[in-house]
Nucleic acid binder design. Structure first.
Lengths: 326, 326
DNA sequence: CTGAAAGCGCTTACAG
DNA sequence: CTGAAAGCGCTTACAG
């Protein structure tokens, strides 16, 4: 049985109301009694019961964060950004992890967050079903996708996927590459993939390069997709540069190509999209379109009350060693 | 204003008590009214207020998990194990992230968990100060360290660090290596490092190899420590094999050595401790002492009520390409 | 099978 | 500056 405010009140010979005010630094109270109360609280090991406090206050100042506990490597960066900003605003964070591509589990997790009455909800690199979106709308919890965009009826903070695809391709073309592949995503199934693909097509078009359908190697953004794409391009030898749609994919490409005896960037050049530390920890290091995930996390919490629009965060091209000078 | 049980009760023309029983599938009730109540609850978008429920029940069936949101790569694996097991037992998980080496922030986070009255607390790969440990003891929350051992007054589930150091060293010796370094930890400051070092010394001693103090390159388990150690050993050329105390360190070693023109395993062999996917994603792939982090997570929750002892989880040596055949 | 009522531990107008 | 009291939304003996 944990100690409660009433215990402190009794010991201090005052009312619970006063104890509450003192402990929360709210309302008026004398500093003398305050000192006494704080000492007692400390001595008997008092810790507020948040259930009771939240219930009474009807506002708990916590924002929920759900992420997929899979190999997506930038979640941690986003979460760091979220935490740093939440600290500044005196907001608590409750994290919950879910599995990628497990709508049931996500639904359950979202329900849990609703039951905990979080003030806002952030979904990191996650694509909710409309069932989830409707649920959230119904209970009027501000929700944002972070690190991914969407065409569904929900706000997001992410990079401009079209522009990243465009930029990656254009830079490659400018450096002299003519046959450019794109690896690791499924433009039929995936909205983000489609946007990037469109940017890629646009850059190709502007340079009067005729797109070949076999320049695409599909996948699900994973390392294994990269490995498979490496095998594909090694076999086909139809491109000289490849855009990996995530750092995972690009590392898979790099390793897969290496294992097949190809040299990067001599035989194939690679530019990755994401730009996490994976890029600097491979040999050669991966040239990348680098997204600002920390900023996304920060913005997601700064804007948590006014859920009025999407925000697109700037990205940049970082030259490393898997391409010629771009 | 979210809808509440009373709203459902009014709509259904019954008491709140009955609604509560139905929604929680507890006590007795007729299936007819149950069906009606469930439909109403769904229609008006009812979600239990957990604050109220927890307060009334004085038990919330949730276990708190705190981890460091830094580059420690095995946290995710542990957390996956924790989640899987928690699901089986119908336990909720609240995750919170903290910074490595930030006792203030950890204290704050632990306090937050206490206020939320978690049934048990898991600290993933974290070394709490005695202040934290005493706090937890005072409020009688079962707490376990997961993924690290300790000599402090708190239980843990981890691998046997002494044995890992011993095993890594002994395997190397058996394969013919005589000059064996250990990189990336500080045996003065760090308890885990000391245990592994003692195992290492024992294996050396058994093989009548005289330990040289310059076989040690200190660090803090990080990638950068690996890079620095690479520079050190490259310069000294005093060992032929190096034990990296974490996958991060080992990857740093590998990359650092590569950048200095050394070849692994020809010039230096490396065996890593951890065995996460980092080991299979480097070229050459890292031979490792592989810990079973998922099992640690699982065990930590299975045992969450009976906090009576430490548990040591088996590890194994996995041969890859940064050493001769061990 | 069902309801009235007390209680969980806080907070917060309100009155003094 | 302080206290008595109501209320937050649930759960759970208890009585029927």
């Amino acid at each position: 049985m944990p100690v409660k405010i009433a215990d402190i009140a009794k010991l201090a010979g005052i009312s619970s109301a006063s104890v509450s005010r003192i402990l929360n630094k709210t309302g008026r109270y004398s500093e003398e009694t305050a000192a006494r109360v704080k000492k007692i609280a400390k001595d008997i090991g008092y810790y507020k019961d948040r259930s009771a406090a939240d219930l009474a206050q009807k506002n708990n100042k916590t924002i929920g964060v759900i992420y997929t506990n899979s190999k997506t490597n930038f979640n941690n960066i986003v979460i760091n950004g979220v935490m740093a900003e939440a600290d500044e605003h005196g907001l608590d964070i409750i994290l919950m992890a879910t599995k990628r591509n497990d709508p049931k589990k996500l639904l359950k997790t979202v329900r849990n967050m609703i039951e905990r009455r979080v003030n806002a909800l952030l979904l990191i690199s996650l694509q909710p079903t409309s069932e989830v979106i409707n649920m959230l709308k119904q209970v009027k919890i501000n929700t944002k996708l972070v690190g991914t965009s969407t065409d569904k009826d929900i706000y997001f903070v992410s990079s401009n996927d079209f522009l990243m695809g465009y930029q990656a391709t254009k830079s490659l073309i400018r450096a002299g590459y003519k046959k450019i592949g794109m690896a690791g995503s499924d433009i039929m199934q995936d909205y983000v993939a489609r946007l990037r693909y469109k940017g890629y097509l646009k850059a190709l078009g502007e340079a009067k390069i005729k797109f070949q359908t076999d320049w695409l190697s599909p996948g699900n953004f994973s390392y294994d997709s990269g490995i498979e794409s490496a095998a594909y391009f090694h076999e086909k030898k139809n491109v000289s540069a490849i855009i990996g749609v995530s750092d995972e994919v690009s590392l898979g490409l790099l390793n897969g190509l290496h294992d097949l005896g190809d040299t990067v960037p001599a035989d194939f050049s690679i530019v990755s999209i994401d730009g996490t530390e994976i890029c600097t920890r491979s040999r050669p290091q991966l040239t990348s379109i680098t997204q600002n995930f920390a900023l996304m996390g920060k913005i997601a919490v700064t804007e948590f009350q006014n859920n009025k629009q999407n925000v697109l965060v700037p990205f940049k091209l970082v030259q490393r060693s898997t391409t010629k000078k771009l």
